[in-house]
């Protein structure tokens, strides 16, 4: 009755709302936690103390180096055909503009293909991408590569429609990349509403002029830590089930949903198991990653350091898609491992959450999954998640304690049972 005991304690019992309350305390205290920022390092120190006070095993910080970029002051104004101040969010690693800003005519396109077709028009302009939202992984290409593709055809800057499934005039940020040999131009996201406004104006043949000012700056890499805590295994202590979320966030909102929820239900999983006096046969290792938003920078260094023990990792788990009411577990692994996970998820029948889906990848555990270790991620309401993702709306107000309780219960049952099975999960 272990599964039932975990579910009862998390959803109906005395641990109810604990992960929500712990998260609220942290994000209300330190706020957003951008890579390289002091608030991120403060959050790491607070978690280091929290995990020690929680009496978990082997609590320690593993040093890594991470990017340090700062947004500075930024603004964008449509000067013609009429004056209209736009809400924008510069993209991580973007360069800034000169102090006086960049004032130029706009070329609006809805795709990279259209940009190629109209390349001769782009020179000396600000390219505005009004790409339709398809899903996150498809549409995020415009945020990541928009500046490079615009620079290749001579543009001075790029403004990209926010990658979101829903907008109430909410700009969304995120990382973007430059390319060797391509001029680095400033790049920012604008709201869906402003992208569509400029698209309509352009479709009527109206000339649009925008003034963009960005104070973005990149500094040399900063020191940071991945935060680690364990429940040491009783029989195969050298074997590991890794359960994780990331502590860093963008510099908007509170980073409560992305990925405070994932980090804190992962901590809650260990707390629930400890509260019930359980100790699985394998070590259950909590890792709270740093600098995930810059492309899994902390996790990549953890992987380099620990891959020597890859044969001892039975399952790697990261929750980084929100902790609203879970609808199932995303999983990547062999068919036999998938069949076993289906049995594990059947233990969650009391919550009616038993689905095992595909695509268990998440940025910080992708290195392990790429090299054969089974991986899992929590599935929930992605439309809601991407409505708030990387925006000022990512605060405790979007979080729901009851849904977090259920998410923590799912996370705890899966991680504990796999950690306690007599054998590790089979691989291809």
């Amino acid at each position: 009755d272990v599964a039932k005991a975990i579910i009862n304690r998390a959803v109906y019992g005395e641990s109810q709302n604990r992960s929500y309350e712990r998260l609220a305390l942290l994000v209300d205290t330190v706020g957003p936690r951008l890579s390289g920022s002091k608030s991120l390092e403060k959050a790491i120190q607070i978690m280091y103390q929290n995990l020690q006070e929680n009496g978990l095993d082997n609590v320690h910080l593993e040093p890594v180096k991470i990017p340090h970029w700062e947004r500075g002051e930024e603004s964008a104004v449509i000067l013609a055909p009429r004056r209209h101040q736009m809400a924008i969010l510069g993209l991580g690693s973007s360069v800034g503009t000169p102090p006086e800003g960049i004032t130029a005519e706009v070329l609006v396109v809805t795709s990279f293909e259209e940009l190629q077709r109209r390349a001769p028009e782009a020179k000396g302009k600000i390219v505005v991408y009004n790409q339709p939202y398809v899903n996150y992984s498809t549409t995020v290409q415009y945020r990541v590569n928009g500046a490079v593709e615009a620079a290749k055809v001579g543009a001075l800057a790029s403004l990209i429609r926010s990658v979101t499934s829903f907008s109430i005039y909410s700009p969304h940020t995120g990382m973007q990349e430059y390319q060797e040999g391509v001029p680095k131009i400033p790049t920012a996201c604008i709201t869906v509403e402003d992208a569509e406004l400029m698209s309509r104006l352009a479709s009527r043949g109206i000339r649009i002029v925008v003034q963009l000012k960005m104070g973005a700056k990149t500094y040399c890499d900063a020191y940071s830590f991945n935060t680690v805590a364990e429940i040491t295994g009783s029989k195969f202590p050298e074997q590991v089930v890794l359960v994780s979320g990331h502590l860093d966030s963008w510099d908007v909102g509170q980073g409560a949903m992305d990925d405070g929820g994932g980090a804190f239900i992962s901590w809650e999983a260990l707390s629930l198991i400890k509260d019930l006096g359980l100790r699985p046969k394998r070590t259950l290792r909590l890792v709270l990653w740093t600098a995930e938003e810059q492309g899994g920078v902390g996790a990549s260094q953890y992987y380099q350091l620990h891959k020597v023990n890859i044969s001892n990792y039975s399952l790697v788990m990261e929750s980084d898609l929100g902790t609203f009411l879970p609808t199932g577990l995303r999983f990547t692994g062999s068919e036999k491992a998938r069949a076993i996970m289906k049995e594990v998820m059947s233990l969650l029948e009391p919550l009616n959450i038993t689905q095992v889906l595909s695509d268990g990848e998440a940025t910080d555990i992708s290195f392990w999954i790429r090299d054969g270790v089974p991986g899992a991620s929590l599935q929930d309401d992605l439309h809601k998640y991407f409505s708030f993702h990387h925006s000022h709306g990512d605060t405790m107000t979007v979080m729901d304690p009851k849904q977090m309780n259920v998410a923590a219960a799912v996370w705890a049952v899966v991680s504990y049972v796999v950690a306690d099975l007599e054998e590790m999960l089979p691989r291809n």
Binding site: D1, L347, G372, V417, M424, P426
Partner: peptide, 24 residues
Amino acid sequence: KAINKSNISQRTFEEIKEEIASYR
């Protein structure tokens, strides 16, 4: 690709199913 030490399972799927059911 790395394989885990006990990749050769000693147990049938039915045995694993029974083991997991014991957590119910």
